[in-house]
Design a binder for these strands. Structure first.
Lengths: 333, 333
DNA sequence: TTGAAAGCGCTAACAC
DNA sequence: GTGTTAGCGCTTTCAA
């Protein structure tokens, strides 16, 4: 910046003004300074700016799995909202590892981001506490929180109920819930919803736990189920997410079972690949775009409040799930 | 930091040493300082550290589409490599927008990252030039570059040739290439490979351009092709990527055509969803993991060279494509 | 409208 | 081993 000032024949203060208060400076000098910047190819040092100015105008977003289109959609919606408001967005992927989640959070704290949007792995209180103590607002995504935080999530119990209720309506008496690990709140809630739907219906619910929520695990689970005894084998499956459902669809086909005639499948999230599957998958829609956008807006509101010292009421927002019935659960007969 | 020093009864210099040169400091004082840090919940200011120390130990990665699993895999592989070497990784998603790509690059320059890994949109010379002038190493990913840059890509002409050669072997005489925009080098190269394969084979190649490389566009293209005249309709399709291929698969099924009996489909990238499709898709495999890893290592090498002032020879690395034949191109008869 | 100067929080060289 | 101190590159008063 010194060099720019020298070349333009002004002081560093004026160069700074050209950047931050362009109207405080004479048109002609502004011109000269901008020429100098261009000629020297000078790029302002963000660390120095941030250190002195004390604000970063940036936020962090951490999702637990960028390989899952569901999280990508949340991410994109939130990102766009921040972009529109002029914030710089730092993306982080915890990739289902708790240590990495913690690492990312610490990194954002050190970078003094204005706020963090977190789609957490399991119970994340330990991670968020540090942020909050440091006065950095945190909004939870994909999880409704009762504690002192804003959060945007879905009623997964209701979602699970909806999915299994739909299967019952199609006449199924033996249903399997496939998901895991059961340590994940989302998975647990969806299972609980499934159990609620089944209660007093006369139908039976098996719970099949898988290690992770991805396609490969779904395929394995399908193989396992397909090879079980005819008498015990469920006629319908509720998969904890669409990746599992897609894997199971392929697994069943590979085992010679037809979907939905031999086995019906319903997934969860309604990612684009669900509708695009060769047997279009029924699913429980999460309004991903609205959720991502809403979370971003909550965070922005909280940041604004924090900066102006205003009072802020944390609010947990819960979206409603919606059944999307496609061929994979609709009997052709 | 001042507060920490005061509480621990030492100087700020000692606190700094505890963080950066732990063995220069007495075990007992280290203990005291660490206690003070914990008690105060102090978190070091990264901007200040970076400004003073002059190094960031961080890199930026920009991909053109996080919604495409292919790029996600490249990303994950590269990310892991950097993590292993202790680098902080900043993720960026240009989302197919050139302005956003430029924005991200400028952001990384201002943040003084040590290097940038870029999976660019189209021709990116303008964007990278600025970085290079600032002395920040850039490695191109998913693109082989002849210019003064390291790059990791694939021989897409060969990949296209391979795909169409496979279709010819299956006896197809009328083949469609579906991809776009043709402005993308990858798409152009794959099309050129297709043309090479067809040349002098007696077969015919149609080129169908689509707007973007996603599932929805594939579905539309399939509908269009399915409804064309029986005599003109291609019996096989080479899709420029797997998203298009997946969309086309669904589109054909929706139009009552069977894959592969009525139309064969081969995709490109071999993303996990390709094998998981209900009609498992043939594809051209890109060694994503190796490519991501290799690009990261090239960048690290260049960063090291830049820091020590050593000479650095740019090298364009090109991986070889591999045919993965699955049911979608194998005649059942 | 512009310049001079203080100082953001930290690191690293040097002195003790 | 530990303290003192200069200064990284910028923003932001305050004076001129």
């Amino acid at each position: 910046m010194k060099d720019v000032a020298a070349l333009a024949g002004v002081s560093v203060g004026t160069v700074s003004n050209v950047l931050n208060q362009p109207d405080r400076v004479l048109e002609s000098t502004r011109q000269r300074v901008e020429d100098a910047i261009r000629k020297l190819g000078w790029i302002r040092n963000e660390s120095a700016r941030q250190l002195r100015a004390g604000r970063s105008e940036s936020v962090g977003i951490v999702v637990m799995d960028v390989a899952n289109p569901y999280f990508v959609d949340l991410l994109l919606a939130a990102e766009e909202t921040f972009y529109d408001r002029g914030y710089t967005v730092n993306l982080g992927n915890s990739d289902q590892h708790r240590e990495r989640e913690a690492l990312l959070m610490r990194h954002f704290m050190r970078s003094r981001v204005d706020g963090v949007l977190l789609a957490p792995i399991g119970n994340s209180s330990g991670v968020t506490d540090e942020l909050l103590r440091a006065g950095i607002p945190v909004v939870l995504l994909d999880r409704v929180s009762g504690t002192g935080l804003c959060s945007v999530g879905m009623d997964d119990i209701e979602g699970g109920r909806l999915a299994v209720h739909h299967l019952l309506e199609q006449g199924h008496k033996r249903i399997a819930f496939v998901g895991g690990p059961l340590g994940l709140a989302q998975v647990r809630d969806r299972a609980r919803g499934a159990r609620l739907a089944v209660a007093n219906s006369g139908a039976h619910l098996d719970v099949v736990e898988v290690k992770t929520l991805d396609v490969e695990e779904g395929r394995k689970a399908a193989q396992h189920i397909a090879r079980s005894d005819r008498g015990i084998r469920p006629t319908a499956v509720f998969a904890a997410n669409d990746l599992i459902a897609i894997g199971m669809l392929q697994g069943f086909v590979a085992e010679g079972l037809s979907v939905p005639d031999d086995v019906a499948i319903i997934g969860y999230d309604d990612i684009d690949f669900a509708a695009a599957a060769a047997v279009p998958l029924s699913s429980i829609r999460q309004p991903r775009y609205e959720m991502g956008r809403c979370a971003a807006e909550l965070l922005l509101k909280e940041i604004t409040a924090a900066e102006s010292g205003d009072e802020h009421q944390h609010e947990p927002v819960s979206f409603s799930p919606e059944l999307v019935a496609r061929i994979s659960t609709l009997r052709t007969s």
